[in-house]
Design a protein around this nucleic acid. Sequence first.
DNA 1: CAAAAAATCAGAACATGTTCTAAAAACAAA
DNA 2: TTTGTTTTTAGAACATGTTCTGATTTTTTG
Lengths: 235, 235
Amino acid sequence: MADDLGKREKAKAERRLRIVRAARDLIRETGDTELSMRTLAQRAEVSLSTPYNLFGSKRAVVLAVLEDVRDFAKRFPRLAVSNSIDRIFAAHDLAFGYYTSDPDFYRTLWRALLNTTGPDETGLSSPERIDQTRAIWLGMVRAACDDGFLGRDIPSHIVLQAMAHTTGGALLSWAMGSLPTKELTPSVGIGYALILKGAATPAGAPLIDAHLSAYRAQRATVNPASLPNHVSETL
Amino acid sequence: MADDLGKREKAKAERRLRIVRAARDLIRETGDTELSMRTLAQRAEVSLSTPYNLFGSKRAVVLAVLEDVRDFAKRFPRLAVSNSIDRIFAAHDLAFGYYTSDPDFYRTLWRALLNTTGPDETGLSSPERIDQTRAIWLGMVRAACDDGFLGRDIPSHIVLQAMAHTTGGALLSWAMGSLPTKELTPSVGIGYALILKGAATPAGAPLIDAHLSAYRAQRATVNPASLPNHVSETL
DNA sequence: CAAAAAATCAGAACATGTTCTAAAAACAAA
DNA sequence: TTTGTTTTTAGAACATGTTCTGATTTTTTG
């Protein structure tokens, strides 16, 4: 039951993998160009219908690519840090390192994810992985709380939600092209630092300030004014 | 020169208005359904080509609707507040009041704005209005800085950018359906409060804390756990 | 091995955003 | 009024995501 030994399921999984890898390779190659379902099917040597049978939508395929290519949960435990605040920012650097190390690839990915053409009730396609990631982050914030760096008066999940919104907004700006790749990690880092400092205890504040300064130095090279965010700034 | 008296320009403006109003009405009526360019052209009694001549893309039309329907810059100066911190949150309530008072309408709008199918170099379609809004917010943050509520060590535009990202992320979650309408204003308000508190002076902190508590009370009715953000949470 | 069930396939079909072409209309200038 | 320029128009066309249909292949089951 755990291992579906059925030959049918095996072939299905193999096809799934072929589709995901074809999608990944196509995005890597074309970069700028959006990958179309027809070329994707050709590349994966399946029919146009098959991705819809196996995934349901293009969005789901792209999400599968994103999950296949990232291994944050695997790498995260190996972060060598000295305290729970540092761990949060180390995790942030790790997570966003994927994006900045291969910007075109991930930008295309995110753009495709945001394109929700039509009534896709697909919504949260693979909750288990998302829940896992969320649990990791929640655990980090809770740890900082337990270590006395964050005040107990503000629940961790509220802090986490604010951080998540910052993440989403910055990724949106970046995917839309209004936030340059160089600014992505520092911008979100500064956002995290401000939010955490807003919830910090006197003990935690200096630890956070160190990261705040570091990120500010990182983006000091860019001109300060005119950083339009044509999505958020519209209100 | 200021007033293009040309009859040609007048007719153009009239058509533009007709298209924008038709789009607004269509979104209001169909709500759930995405408005299509063909039905939009029919409703506005113009050809399918005309919206493309006058606006360039569907995105631009929707953006024009958004600008037509909002009058934040007009209402903003009339806010009666006692200090510069209160003004920021009053402005936030004003801005997001639009969304929460007519959620279906604005959700459809935002969804259409996010749908960037194809290579639309339209990008920042109408910068003047956006710059105006940005200037308003930047002025508010600067004022709070000048009044001694925010520390001078963190530039205002950096604080503003963090706030803008929070806004964008929350609106994205809301438009995608993972953030309920009731939570929208308080969530962003809490995000603003945390960010501002992270940059606040001892004088400003208590003022911000008051709003933080108020927003927390506002969203206390909802269950705390399981607020999935299937965009941001994916990392 | 034969029948049944499940999946894939090729291809058409639909709705959509966008572009293009030629013709008609509206306007400005003489 | 005549001429010339600009804009709109109708309609086809293209690319795309998605769905559907019937035929074909593959796997399971008896």
